[in-house]
Design a binder for these strands. Structure first.
Lengths: 148, 148
DNA sequence: TATTGTTATACTCTATAACTATA
DNA sequence: TATAGTTATAGAGTATAACAATA
């Protein structure tokens, strides 16, 4: 029911309870992500962009698909990141129209720091769980996400 | 590790696996939330605003706290919602400075529809889990969130 | 013709700083 | 002085529509 993390509603059915729990959890986790991004002077979208580029050199259109954004939005996103020397646009070999985006050393350093900052925050969230509970949670979420 | 939902990284430790799972899950759930909001011509923030107002009549400052926004941001947010007759600003009795924000019938209808649209989407996400697994997941997430 | 990416434009969202009015 | 809220301003983020270049 709740679309807000501080709205602790009394779920009336098991289904409602699940929807509530996942929505609420997503807000709490996203807040941590946004704070980590902000601490590195990045928006959450910029951080996601860098995260994607860590092990890929995608075309603009592929970035748009992965980020669920319009191609024109990605143009601006990459432009701003490029201005900060976090990414670089390169000509796509073999297709005169295409561009591929590559992360720079600066960008890589930034995303590494952000990732390092994220872990303790997310782990702190789960401090009320035992080690066994945490591993059960990981297993369930992995199944839910279709990841084995 | 992953800051992006489509980045299925091989977590190297149980801690990394937990951070990955929760981050990934949060993106997937937020995508559903954003799509539901968009289907009702709302941003996720506007939907959160309405969600808060369902059972409250808060002051602007309280809204800012709940939404993790600056007061000036809330001014614009409420203004746009008011322009669409989704909320109404009222004078706070007993404090000439204060304002309280109330959801309108239109707003309530909209948020109800959005909530109804969200449930099947989130439930579909968890279709790979058994009923018992879903209830375990709810219990673990509730503990994590400190909600008993 | 279709695809890739950009540009032009217009909004929403957000924060900072300065302001007004009330307490 | 302190608090509640707004305004002015600036910038990021986003989409739609129209465009150029290439395929």
């Amino acid at each position: 029911m709740s679309t807000h993390e501080q709205h602790r509603s009394a779920a009336t059915s098991p289904d409602d309870a699940l929807v509530d729990a996942l929505a609420h959890l997503s807000f709490v986790v996203q807040l941590e992500l946004a704070e980590v991004a902000a601490a590195h002077d990045l928006s959450l979208t910029q951080l996601r962009l860098l995260g994607i580029l860590v092990d890929r050199t995608p075309a603009m259109a592929e970035l748009a698909t992965r980020l669920h954004l319009d191609r024109s939005s990605v143009t601006g996103l990459v432009e701003r990141a490029e201005k900060r020397d976090l990414v670089r646009r390169e000509k796509r070999p073999g297709d005169g129209r295409g561009v591929q985006v590559r992360i720079t050393a600066d960008g890589l350093r930034l995303v590494d720091h952000a990732k390092a900052a994220l872990s303790p925050r997310v782990l702190a969230l789960s401090s009320t769980l035992t080690a066994r509970q945490r591993s059960t949670l990981v297993a369930l979420v992995s199944t839910l996400l279709g990841g084995a």
